[in-house]
């Protein structure tokens, strides 16, 4: 569809783009989930990904973090082509992915969960400082540091994921349904954290059911329908546009 090319590129130069998907097709085994997706996220830009259930939002997030390898097209992260690279190369290139649902190691303790990523980024010496930083952000994690992450409540697990991401200081954060099933206070807290990240120059790709939250946070909105971006525009434009798209029943076969 090539809509990505028509999208208002914020910073112009491709090299500085945090993420670039070029003509990406992807799926699971025989099932296609994404068709001809073009998407560029400039450094420091926040993009909201919107669409009905099954539109391919999660698949797009997975391609962007290397979990799913596209069958066609290419994925460029910070100017480097990582299309066929394993997911850990994406993480090392500064892409942090908070996947939908449980995204912590249930059989490891809270502290061990944090140690895994802090150790990689800051080494043994920075471990202590990193842990302290995480516990300062979310004191409740400090209280539960020796508890198995699998026994945390849904909200606490999200906090753990957020703590991991925040200490990580990535260049691009992919947040897939971060507020799903969270208490209102937690949702607010999460969005404040995202806002802070954004102000510190982290690019965001946000998938969110609560569109108002996403629109308030993001510069640009991409509407995905049946595996293809059908509309890309600014948040202001999106506000009017979305109401019609979201509430028209999807054509089903």
């Amino acid at each position: 569809m090539g809509l990505g090319g028509a999208a208002p590129a914020k910073n112009g130069a491709d090299v500085s783009a945090a993420l670039e998907l070029r003509r990406v097709y992807a799926g699971y085994g025989p099932f296609r989930a994404l068709f001809d997706v073009n998407l560029t996220i400039a450094a420091g830009e926040a993009v909201a990904l919107v669409g009905s259930n099954g539109a391919g939002k999660t698949s797009l997030a997975r391609v962007a973090s290397g979990l799913v390898t596209p069958s066609e097209g290419s994925v460029v992260v910070n100017g480097r082509d990582l299309t066929r690279a394993p997911a850990y190369r994406y993480a090392r290139a500064g892409v942090a992915h908070a996947p939908e649902g449980r995204s912590v190691f249930a059989t490891l303790t809270v502290e061990e969960n944090l140690e895994l990523s802090i150790h990689r980024i800051r080494g043994r010496k920075g471990l202590k400082a990193g842990l302290e930083q995480a516990y300062a952000l979310y004191p409740i994690l400090g209280e539960r540091r020796q508890q198995l992450a699998g026994t945390l409540s849904g909200g606490e697990q999200r906090m753990l994921t957020m703590a991991r991401v925040l200490v990580d200081a990535p260049r691009l954060l992919i947040a897939d349904e971060l507020s799903l099933g969270l208490a209102p206070l937690m949702v607010q807290h999460t969005y404040e954290a995202l806002q802070q990240l954004r102000q510190s120059g982290v690019a965001l790709l946000v998938i969110e059911q609560h569109v108002t939250h996403a629109l308030a946070l993001c510069d640009r909105v991409v509407i995905l329908d049946r595996g293809t971006p059908t509309w890309i525009g600014s948040s202001e434009q999106a506000r009017t546009r979305l109401q019609t798209v979201l509430h028209s029943p999807p054509t089903s076969n």
Partner: peptide, 11 residues
């Protein structure tokens, strides 16, 4: 108190 913030956005 428990829910409002997470209600879907009315159109």
């Amino acid at each position: 108190a428990a829910y409002l913030g997470s209600l879907p956005v009315p159109t």
